[in-house]
């Protein structure tokens, strides 16, 4: 792992001014100034979208027998399929989140072995970031312990959602459409965090996207649970939301700390 610094980046047009001005002159000659518009392509895309089939379906409850009361049959209002789909999405996201934190722990270790101090205790970073409201009591634990704790909380959220789905007669091993789409969206984050060349700060930037999305996901799930008449679930989800709010604050503050205090080290 190496720090981010000035070097021989060759991508910009200013790196080869003669070549690019020659290219630009030829491009001007070959394609005169015209209104930039892609109406044919836009119409084709609209047609594709109109004619497209769904990504897939939400798996129906395995059995309505014996779960009717506590299960999907008890869901009120809205569409039960939407609630199950979003439960499946959160479940998949928390499961991937567990793996993301495992990758982040490796990144943290690599930063330390590359000679960086890497991360401070979360409490120290939270204090240093102006404007961050500390939601819980200061976290004085070792940063690795914090990372492990967050990883375990993601895992616990995954398990909790699995139990919820099971009790409702759903299949927690199935991939729902929104779970699939969330996997596609998370793919880039996973690529960043697992790339040996990225710094800890770059990995934290990617993790921030995941955590902000996760926080909003739990907020939404809590609302949906109330909408379908499941206040107990809503309470459970609110507990998860509070933990995710803490995750966002910690990741944000660690990132700010690294960028302002550790510039020039392998972590940045």
């Amino acid at each position: 792992m190496q720090s981010t610094r000035f070097g021989a980046n060759r991508t910009g047009a200013r790196m080869s001014p003669l070549n690019t001005s020659s290219m630009a002159a030829l491009a001007d000659e070959a394609s005169p100034e015209t209104h930039i518009g892609t109406p044919v392509m836009d119409a084709a895309k609209v047609a594709f979208a109109t004619e497209a089939e769904a990504i897939g379906s939400v798996p129906p409850p395995l059995s309505l027998k014996g779960v009717a009361k506590a299960g999907m049959a008890a869901l009120k209002g809205g569409a039960p399929s939407v609630f199950v789909d979003k439960l499946g999405e959160r479940l998949a996201f928390e499961r991937s989140g567990t793996r993301l934190y495992e990758a982040l722990i490796i990144k943290h270790q690599a930063a330390q072995q590359s000679g960086s101090e890497a991360l401070p205790p979360a409490a120290e970073a939270l204090e240093a970031l102006p404007g961050v409201r500390v939601l819980l009591e200061m976290l004085a634990e070792d940063p690795l312990a914090t990372l492990m704790r967050i990883r375990n909380e993601e895992l616990a959220h995954f398990q909790m959602l699995g139990d919820c789905l099971q009790r409702m007669g759903g299949d927690p091993t199935a991939m729902t459409p929104s779970a699939d789409v969330a996997g596609v969206a998370t793919g880039g984050i996973l690529q960043v965090v697992t790339d040996p060349r990225t710094t800890l700060a770059q990995a934290l930037t990617a993790m921030l996207s995941a955590e902000v999305t996760d926080q909003a996901g739990w907020e939404l799930l809590e609302i949906l649970a109330r909408d379908v008449g499941q206040p107990d679930l809503a309470t459970l989800f609110h507990g998860a939301l509070e933990q995710e709010q803490e995750h966002v604050a910690i990741i944000r503050s660690w990132l700010a700390y690294l960028l302002s205090r550790e510039a020039g080290t392998a972590a940045v």
């Binding site: 630009a24 491009a27 001007d28 394609s31 930039i36 892609t38 109406p39 044919v40 392509m41």
Partner: peptide, 8 residues
């Protein structure tokens, strides 16, 4: 359609 390579 109407694509004109431009630096940036």
């Amino acid at each position: 359609a109407a694509f004109h390579w431009t630096a940036g």
